[in-house]
Amino acid sequence: MKRVRCPKCDNYITFDETRYEQGQSLVFQCHNCGKQFGIKIGVSKLKALQKEEQLNEKANEKGFGSIIVIENVFHYKQVIPLQFGVNIIGRYMKGSKTNTPIETNDPSIDINHCSITVSRDKHGRLKYVLRDGPSYTGTFVDNVILGDREQRVIEDGTLFTIGATSVILRSAECEE
C-alpha cells in the first residue's frame, strides 16, 4: 500500500500500487477537500540520469558542497552536488533551466524555485547565498520567508524549506 498526500489539505489517500502498471497515470479526488490531482506510477527518469556517486552523502567531487533533500511523501532522500556559480533549484522537468533538479511530485515546488550562488569571499572561503526565485509558495529559512528575490547568506547545516520540502546545505569544508 502507498500513500499520497493531497496538495491542498495534506490529507493522506491510500491505494494499492500493485494493481497498477508502471507508467500508468492515476487521478485522485481528496474526500476531505474535493481537490483533484494526478500522479504517475513508475521508475524515476531523473534517477537514471544521476551518477551513482551523487546519491551518497560525499557526492561532491569538485568540492563546492551539496544539498540534502529530506525524504517525505513526495520523494526519497536525495543528495545533490552544487557547482561553482548559480545553482537553480527546482522540480525536475525535462528541458527546464534548472541545473540542480529535485525529483519530486510536490506540486508546491516551482520548476525554478530558488537558487544558491556558490562563490568565494575575500579570504578565499566558499560562500553560499540563497535567493528566492521568485516562487509561488516561497522559500523559508529558519521559518522566515524570503521576499521575492531577497538573498540570504547560509552556512553548513542551514535548513531551508521550498514548498513542502526541507533541504539542508552541506558546505564543501564539512563534507571531507
Rank of each mutant, 00 (worst) to 15 (best):
L55A: 14
N105H: 12
L49P: 10
C174G: 01
A59F: 08
G90I: 00
G23T: 01
F160T: 09
S115G: 05
Q22L: 05
I68N: 09
I162L: 03
K62N: 08
G63Q: 00
S115M: 08
E71P: 11
R131L: 00
T14F: 00
N72G: 04
E57P: 10
D121T: 07
N87I: 01
I145E: 10
T165D: 12
H113G: 08
K127E: 10
R152M: 06
P107C: 08
F74D: 11
T100S: 12
F64P: 01
S166P: 06
G65W: 01
V69A: 11
L26W: 01
S44Q: 01
P7Q: 07
L26F: 12
N99H: 01
V129M: 04
I68L: 15
L169T: 10
G90E: 00
P7K: 11
K45M: 07
K122Q: 14
T18D: 11
Q50M: 15
F160R: 06
C6H: 09
E17M: 02
D16P: 05
P81D: 12
F74P: 01
K45S: 13
V86T: 13
Q29D: 07
C33W: 06
P134F: 05
G90T: 00
K51M: 03
D10R: 07
N112I: 12
I70V: 09
Q22D: 15
Y76C: 08
D106W: 03
M1V: 15
S25R: 02
I41M: 08
K62Y: 11
E150W: 02
R5I: 14
Y128L: 00
P101E: 02
V118Q: 08
L49T: 11
S66V: 02
R170Q: 13
E150T: 06
D110T: 14
N72A: 09
R125M: 08
T18I: 08
I154F: 03
H75G: 03
P81M: 13
I39H: 05
Q22M: 04
V86K: 14
Q36S: 14
Q151D: 01
K94A: 10
T18M: 03
D156L: 06
P134T: 09
K35D: 03
R170N: 09
H31P: 09
Y20R: 04
C6P: 09
N112T: 12
S66L: 02
V4S: 06
I80Y: 03
F64K: 02
G163Y: 06
Q22E: 11
G63L: 02
F140K: 13
G42T: 04
